[in-house]
Design a binder for these strands. Structure first.
Length: 212
DNA sequence: TGCCAGGCCGGGT
DNA sequence: ACCCGGCATGGC
């Protein structure tokens, strides 16, 4: 299955490096992963900026913050009531299990850490894997709506297949490399935003269609 | 101006 | 094991 590597090369040639994740620290990346659930990244940036402007972008600060205050600050990210609960759940887990230290969290075995993250209310497979890959630099491939759309539209895998089935395709086909997984997922988002959009059945000058 | 955005949960079948 | 409604703001 060298096809996945071929696709990667074409996307990289077309779009270049994406410089992900757009966040300064592992903790900020983890928060961003929760805030961006089904949400435009631009809105997430506003929420994170609000936290920064109030000097509360830390586990301890958010842990001690009232629900009302947190909801107010992350409001631009949408679903703010739901996401306030989810941020609180994640940070309670983060404080209890790792004393608010991303280094400690990073030291845990990837497989068991993933299962623990999935047990936190509000963290599903994509959010867990985004934290593992982009915040903790674990070689875990992130599947999202764009990945499914692009692969299904190009006949690589049926859209209805599960998250785990899509992920296995990458894990079995590619070298487990953090840099590769980082760039590849970011490129799926890029191509999904630019030329593989929802309502367009197909697009000309798609870098994956040119030649073959 | 309606559609879309880097999901996930809980209840029902 | 799937299917679905709910959750909400802001940009185009």
């Amino acid at each position: 299955m060298a096809i996945l590597l071929e696709i990667y090369k074409k996307l990289y040639q077309a779009f270049g490096p994406q410089h992900w994740w757009p966040g300064d620290t592992p903790f900020e990346i983890a928060l961003g992963a929760i805030l961006t659930q089904n949400t435009n990244w631009g809105n997430v940036e506003k929420a994170i900026q609000n936290l920064k402007n109030n000097n509360v972008l830390s586990a301890r600060s958010i842990y001690e913050m009232s629900v009302k205050k947190l909801a107010e600050l992350i409001r631009p990210a949408g679903y703010f009531n739901v996401k306030t609960r989810r941020l609180k759940s994640f940070i309670a887990f983060f404080m209890n299990e790792y004393h608010g230290s991303t280094k400690r969290m990073k030291g845990e075995d990837t497989y068991s850490l993933r299962n623990k993250l999935l047990s936190v209310n509000g963290i599903g497979p994509e959010t867990a894997d985004s934290i593992l890959l982009y915040a903790l630099e674990k070689p875990v491939f992130v599947i999202d709506a764009y990945t499914k759309r692009v692969l299904s539209r190009h006949g690589i895998m049926e859209h209805k297949k599960s998250y785990d089935e899509f992920q296995e395709l990458f894990h079995y086909s590619l070298k487990r490399d953090v840099r590769l997984f980082n760039e590849y997922h970011a490129l799926f988002v890029k191509v999904g935003k630019t030329c593989c959009k929802r309502k367009k059945p197909l697009c000309d000058n798609c870098p994956l269609n040119v030649n073959g």
